[in-house]
């Protein structure tokens, strides 16, 4: 135990801080030749916006929100943005991380260099958040183009998307350190789909039975959806800080658990 902690703790003074960025550099290099894969990641929320937001939106009309009536597509777009931030971050820190360490042995090669396990984990999380920031910026611009963003508070939409990404990156990475084989990732799917569908993403909390409402108020994506929706529609309240704190704590705790376990995982 002490030997492992030692190898993670003491790093040469020079350049140690830049090391996680080498992971980002590596990922940029990998995507340079497969830019179309990167690009395709942007389509998913946009397609949902067109189909559910606009298509089904015509059947739904306007919804009461915080005392006003809002268009359904305006209601659903921030939810889609929050879900996309969760999705991308979780996939990067679970499936993609697992494939790289277990099957392509990408990290084995990297850990033979001055980069350590902490650098690899930090670098991958930073990369996931950067990717999330790019996608959410693109989606926000799409929303603006569709005239779905009435408030200047929306400037905070991307930082909050990164916060959502941070929360799920922590949870994802911590979870991955417990995975034994890819069959275990069924649990990730099991978590992703219900969160996506039932975090007040597509319909307001009032549609649920009272008992379920209380449960949903406690789930993680719900916090992100509430935040993004408030920012896009400009309905700011102090209670939003509670939702933001929830996400920050979730990410911090997850990364703490992951940091304790990831050394043993990557360097048995």
């Amino acid at each position: 135990m002490s030997a492992r902690m030692g190898s993670m703790r003491v790093l040469p003074p020079l350049g140690a801080r830049q090391r996680p960025w080498r992971m980002v550099e590596r990922n940029v290099l990998a995507y340079r030749r497969t830019w179309y894969v990167f690009l395709s990641g942007f389509f998913e929320p946009v397609l949902f916006l067109l189909s559910i937001g606009i298509g089904v939106g015509k059947l739904v009309g306007k919804l009461p929100f915080d005392g006003h009536l809002v268009d359904y597509k305006q209601f659903v777009a921030p939810g889609l943005l929050a879900s996309a931030a969760m999705n991308g971050s979780l996939l990067d820190t679970t499936f993609n991380f697992f494939v790289k360490y277990k099957y392509s042995h990408t990290y084995d090669a990297i850990l033979a260099t001055p980069l350590g396990t902490g650098d690899v984990a930090t670098g991958e999380v930073v990369w996931a958040l950067m990717r999330g920031a790019i996608y959410s910026t693109a989606f926000l611009l799409t929303m603006v183009a569709f005239g779905l963003v009435p408030s200047w508070w929306a400037l905070l939409v991307v930082p909050v998307a990164v916060l959502i990404g941070f929360a799920f990156a922590g949870a994802g990475l911590a979870g991955t350190t417990f995975m034994r084989s890819w069959v275990d990732f069924d649990y990730v799917t099991l978590a992703l789909v219900p969160l996506f569908l039932f975090s007040a993403t597509f319909f307001p909390l009032s549609q649920y039975p009272a008992g379920l409402q209380a449960v949903i108020r406690l789930t993680p994506l719900y916090q992100g959806v509430v935040l993004e929706r408030a920012l896009v529609l400009g309905h700011m309240q102090w209670t939003l800080l509670v939702h933001a704190a929830y996400l920050a704590v979730m990410g911090a705790v997850g990364l703490r658990v992951a940091a304790r376990r990831i050394g043993r995982l990557l360097q048995p």
């Binding site: 002490s2 030997a3 030692g6 190898s7 003491v10 790093l11 040469p12 140690a16 033979a112 260099t113």
Partner: peptide
């Protein structure tokens, strides 16, 4: 010592 100076050692391997 690999436990303390892993990164410096790896830099030269």
């Amino acid at each position: 010592d690999p436990a303390a100076d892993g990164a410096q050692i790896r830099a030269r391997l």
